[in-house]
C-alpha cells in the first residue's frame, strides 16, 4: 500500500514528534507550574515569551532558531564545539523546531489543569506529614494528569503538522528532515505526485485520530470519569 519511501516518511515524522514531545514535556510542565502558581513580577513577560511561537509567523520562529542554533549562533557554536552536536539540516533540528512550536500549546493545557488542582488538598497532604515533593508527586501530579495528557496530544499533533519553522530551520531534506507536511508539500510540487499526496494526507488523518482516541482512553484510565475528556 505504502512505498518504502512513504513508510520512511511516517517513521521519521513519528520519531521527530516523539523526541520533540520528550524534550518539551518537562520544560512545559515546569513553565506551566510557574505560570499557574508563581507570584512574581515579570510573570506577564514570561507568559508572553512562552506564547510567542503561537502568534509569530512560523517562518520567523524558524529564522530565530537559525540565528540562535546555526553554526555561528551563540547556542549553536557551544553545541558544536563543546558537544559536537549540529542541529542545522538534521532530524534533530526538525525535532527542535517542532518542540518550540508545540511548547505554548502544551504549557496552556498543563497550566489549566494545574490551576484546577485544589490547593486545599495539597494543604491536607502537608498536615498528614507529606513534604512539598511528596505532596507534588502524590496529589498535584496525578490530579493534573488529564491536562498533561491533553498537552501531550496537542503537542504531538502540532509537531506532526509543523511546517514553517521546520522548513526554515532544518530545510526539506529527504530522509533527514522531510516529515509528513514537508513530504506532502514536495509531492504537490512534483509532477505526478497526486497519489502520494492522497496517501500521506490519509496517514495524517489516521495519526491525528489515533492520538485523540488514545488520549481519551488514557484519560478514562486515570479513573476520573468526568475529567476523561481532555480536549
Amino acid at each position: 500500500m505504502l512505498s518504502a519511501e512513504e513508510w520512511q516518511i511516517v517513521a521519521l515524522s513519528l520519531k521527530v514528534g516523539a523526541v520533540a514531545i520528550a524534550l518539551t514535556l518537562p520544560v512545559a510542565f515546569v513553565l506551566a507550574w510557574v505560570l499557574a502558581r508563581g507570584r512574581f513580577r515579570g510573570i506577564v513577560l514570561l507568559d508572553a515569551l512562552v506564547h510567542l511561537p503561537l502568534v509569530l509567523p512560523p517562518v520567523v520562529t524558524g529564522w530565530l532558531l537559525l540565528i540562535a542554533f546555526g553554526p555561528a549562533g551563540p547556542v549553536g557554536r557551544v553545541l558544536s564545539q563543546v558537544f559536537g552536536i549540529t542541529l542545522l539540516f538534521r532530524w534533530t533540528g526538525a525535532a527542535l523546531a517542532a518542540a518550540v512550536m508545540s511548547l505554548p500549546l502544551m504549557v496552556r493545557a498543563i497550566r489549566l489543569s494545574i490551576e484546577a488542582v485544589d490547593t486545599r488538598l495539597e494543604q491536607a497532604a502537608r498536615t498528614l506529614g507529606a513534604g512539598p515533593w511528596r505532596t507534588f508527586a502524590t496529589i498535584t501530579l496525578p490530579l493534573s494528569l488529564p491536562g498533561v495528557l491533553a498537552g501531550v496530544v496537542l503537542g504531538l499533533a502540532r509537531s506532526l503538522g509543523e511546517f514553517g519553522a521546520t522548513i526554515t530551520f532544518a530545510s526539506n531534506i529527504p530522509g533527514e528532515t522531510r516529515t509528513l507536511p514537508l513530504a506532502i508539500y514536495a509531492a504537490l510540487q512534483a509532477p505526478g505526485g497526486d497519489a502520494m499526496v492522497w496517501r500521506l494526507a490519509a496517514i495524517s488523518v489516521v495519526l491525528s485520530l489515533a492520538a485523540l482516541v488514545a488520549s481519551e482512553a488514557l484519560g478514562r484510565r486515570t479513573g476520573m470519569g468526568r475529567h476523561g475528556h481532555v480536549l
Binding site: 486545599r120 491536607a124 506529614g129 496529589i139 476520573m224
Partner: peptide, 17 residues
C-alpha cells in the same frame, strides 16, 4: 508536615483520586 497536628477540615478534603 513536622508539626504533628492532625487536621480534620470543615470541607474534609479527602483525596478524590
Amino acid at each position: 508536615e513536622r508539626r504533628g497536628c492532625g487536621f480534620v477540615f470543615q470541607d474534609l478534603r479527602l483525596f478524590p483520586h
